[in-house]
Design a protein around this nucleic acid. Structure first.
Lengths: 237, 237
DNA sequence: CGACGCTTTGACACAACTCAACAACCGTGG
DNA sequence: CCACGGTTGTTGAGTTGTGTCAAAGCGTCG
């Protein structure tokens, strides 16, 4: 799973929203110059340094933010794919109290909050783009809330996979019919609010209905229309 | 259910976070000078006027934001009580695609987005306070997500009531043991992701266990400690 | 008075969870 | 080389929490 190109995925994504000038692009590039490798299953400590909370730009690999409840295991709040920022909201707003962890081996660029804020004030359009990204995350949390609340396990799963497909294709990590997905069934369970066992059964159903398969870390979509209908997926946040 | 005092509830709430100067207070007051009555069950149209999206400051009564899914009924995303802003996030970020509606007869002050933004840039501390309020909302959405995902119906309900109690006491609309709650069991069902029928059963259980009652629009808490334990409530966002 | 909105209750169905195995696939070390 | 434990996936049998359907009670308001 190599980084697709030398151009930053984040830049690519933001570009589809607000076309960025060359100045802005380079500045963005500077922001995530320092890349760090982190092993899978690690906690990204979002340290309250003197420079405010740290955000992480994901260059490669997947991560997630989650919450732990007293009794149950963790509930994944959002999944981050290459080109996403983890902890951006914590910088813009002040929402602590959920954790970040890596789902695969990962390459990240830590960015101190103050640097982001400074950058935003110097390049307002960049700020607008980042805000867009943040509000997109926000919208996804709400969508997920509604989904978990009101969709059946199979609809939820279908929807989740389609959302992933859409997001991944924004950074050119997915085609119409296929993409890599390193999530285990445990991870899926944490994200979908199901048991790992039930995730397995649901995946079987999806397979038996010739809709999607998830095998060896790759998702293949066989019938986009029926899948979309099942998920009640509207797309394009 | 009269407006508790001549002082704005919003001001009261923000004050507990950032002490506001007299200037800031008056400016805040100016923001919601125009009060409008709206009947219960109305849609608050969050019109995309030339002045950007409109937010509403709730002076009196309750409202909610919700999403509608293709199949199911609506899912309430957040409940707004007096002193809250509806649609603030839509102003700061750009998250449309959920709706606002009133749960009771209501008194609101519509505020155009641009006015808020202007005010924020002139009075940064006020901005900080508003951001705090927004991020608090955000945190509650996440908490709700986790709750719906991982808590049982009774835990969820208990938690929800405690959250309400805490928020209401911030604007002095709740004592330690009692507060007014105009929500019907249908409303609760929409918020808790349950059926109205099951809400009823859950409320009965809570009553039979001598924890809380909801009767004639008032919630009475009988055993705070056990309730807190049941809900896994940590309080103080 | 009837109509309507809200609550309460019961009987039943089903989706998802729990518990319990087992199979396949690693990488590691003897 | 094989044995090993650890991780992930697969499947079955039985349980349970919620949803569904149906009906009735009770205020209030017109």
């Amino acid at each position: 799973m190599a980084n697709a190109s030398s151009e930053s995925l984040l830049a690519k994504k933001l570009n589809t929203f607000v076309p960025l000038s060359w100045d802005e692009q380079t500045r963005l590039r500077e922001l995530h110059s320092g890349a760090v490798r982190v092993k899978r299953g690690k906690h990204l400590v979002h340290q309250e340094a003197q420079n405010g909370p740290t955000a992480y730009i994901l260059q490669d690999g997947w991560a997630c933010t989650y919450k732990v409840l007293p009794k149950a295991e963790r509930q994944v709040v959002s999944i981050a794919i290459p080109g996403d920022c983890v902890g951006l909201r914590s910088v813009l707003l002040r929402s602590p109290d959920h954790h970040f962890s890596t789902l695969t081996d990962v390459v990240v660029s830590p960015v101190e909050g103050t640097r982001i804020l400074k950058c935003v004030s110097e390049f307002p359009r960049l700020g607008a783009a980042l805000l867009w990204a943040a509000s997109r995350d926000e919208a996804m949390v709400v969508e997920r809330l509604a989904g978990i609340a009101r969709r059946s396990a199979i609809e939820r799963t279908a929807h989740f996979l389609m959302e992933l497909a859409e997001r991944l294709s924004l950074v050119e990590l997915a085609t119409e019919t296929e993409f890599k997905c390193p999530l285990t069934q445990f991870d899926l369970a944490d994200a979908l609010a199901l048991t790992d066992i039930h995730v397995n059964r649901v995946l079987r159903q999806l397979r038996e209905r010739d809709l999607v398969t998830l095998k060896d870390g790759t998702v293949k979509i066989y019938d986009l229309n029926r899948l979309r209908k099942l998920a009640g997926f509207h797309g394009a946040t």
